[in-house]
Each structure stands twice: as C-alpha cells, then as structure tokens.
Amino acid sequence: MGIGGCIALIGVGAILTFATDWHSDSVNIDLVGVIMMAVGIIGIATFTSIARRRRAVVSETVVQRDDRGAGGGFGGPGSY
C-alpha cells in the first residue's frame, strides 16, 4: 500500500468517525473509522521509514590533475 492508500484510509476513517451519524446494532461505525485512521497513520509511518532507508547517499569524488611539475612526454616538462 502506498502513501496514497494510507491517506485515503485516514480520510475515509475521518468521514466515518466525524461526519456520519449512522447507528448499527452490530457494528460501531465510529470505532471502524478510528481503526481505519490508525491503520493509515501506521502505514504512512512505515512507508516513510522504508523510503528513508532506500534513499541512496551519493558522494562526489573530484579528481584533479596536477600539471605544474609533471614531466615526460616529447615536448619537454609539463607540455601536453
């Protein structure tokens, strides 16, 4: 489940908890909404922690050529 699915779970759970006044004898709709919001929050936390670990660390290596005293070659010292 991606981050979009987690946000959808939080949104649907909030709607069920705060925006509806349905009553059922067998199912507590408010509790179902709270559970959906909790699962969405746990999913976002898990997704972001996994995404943070997958992020690659890129290091740059700079190679410099020193032409000041490099001798050799056919043209004399330092010629290229």
Rank of each mutant, 00 (worst) to 15 (best):
4 G>P: 01
4 G>I: 07
5 G>E: 14
5 G>C: 08
6 C>F: 12
7 I>G: 06
7 I>N: 15
8 A>I: 09
9 L>T: 03
10 I>N: 03
11 G>A: 12
11 G>Q: 13
12 V>Q: 11
12 V>G: 11
12 V>C: 06
13 G>T: 02
13 G>N: 13
13 G>V: 06
14 A>H: 06
16 L>Y: 06
16 L>R: 05
18 F>N: 14
19 A>S: 13
19 A>K: 06
20 T>R: 15
22 W>E: 13
22 W>P: 00
22 W>I: 15
22 W>M: 05
23 H>R: 14
23 H>I: 07
24 S>Y: 13
24 S>M: 05
25 D>I: 01
25 D>N: 11
25 D>Y: 09
26 S>I: 15
26 S>Q: 08
26 S>Y: 14
27 V>S: 01
27 V>K: 04
27 V>I: 02
28 N>D: 05
28 N>Q: 00
28 N>K: 03
29 I>P: 14
29 I>T: 14
29 I>A: 03
30 D>T: 08
30 D>L: 12
30 D>K: 11
31 L>W: 14
31 L>Y: 04
32 V>K: 14
32 V>C: 07
32 V>F: 15
33 G>N: 09
33 G>C: 11
34 V>I: 08
34 V>E: 08
35 I>V: 15
35 I>A: 10
35 I>D: 04
36 M>F: 10
36 M>Q: 08
37 M>N: 02
37 M>D: 01
37 M>W: 04
38 A>H: 08
38 A>W: 01
38 A>S: 10
39 V>Y: 04
40 G>N: 04
40 G>W: 08
41 I>T: 13
42 I>D: 02
42 I>H: 04
42 I>L: 04
42 I>W: 07
43 G>W: 12
43 G>T: 04
44 I>D: 05
44 I>V: 06
45 A>G: 03
45 A>H: 15
46 T>A: 11
46 T>P: 02
46 T>D: 03
48 T>M: 12
48 T>W: 05
48 T>F: 03
48 T>N: 15
48 T>D: 13
49 S>P: 00
49 S>L: 15
49 S>D: 02
49 S>V: 09
50 I>P: 01
51 A>I: 02
51 A>N: 13
52 R>S: 03
53 R>T: 04
56 A>S: 10
56 A>R: 13
56 A>E: 11
58 V>G: 02
58 V>L: 11
59 S>K: 13
59 S>H: 15
60 E>W: 05
60 E>C: 03
61 T>F: 11
61 T>I: 14
61 T>C: 02
61 T>H: 08
61 T>M: 11
62 V>F: 09
63 V>C: 10
63 V>I: 12
64 Q>F: 05
65 R>Y: 14
65 R>P: 00
65 R>F: 01
66 D>C: 06
66 D>T: 07
67 D>F: 11
67 D>N: 10
67 D>Y: 08
68 R>F: 13
68 R>A: 04
70 A>T: 10
71 G>N: 12
72 G>K: 12
72 G>E: 09
72 G>Y: 07
72 G>R: 10
73 G>C: 02
73 G>V: 02
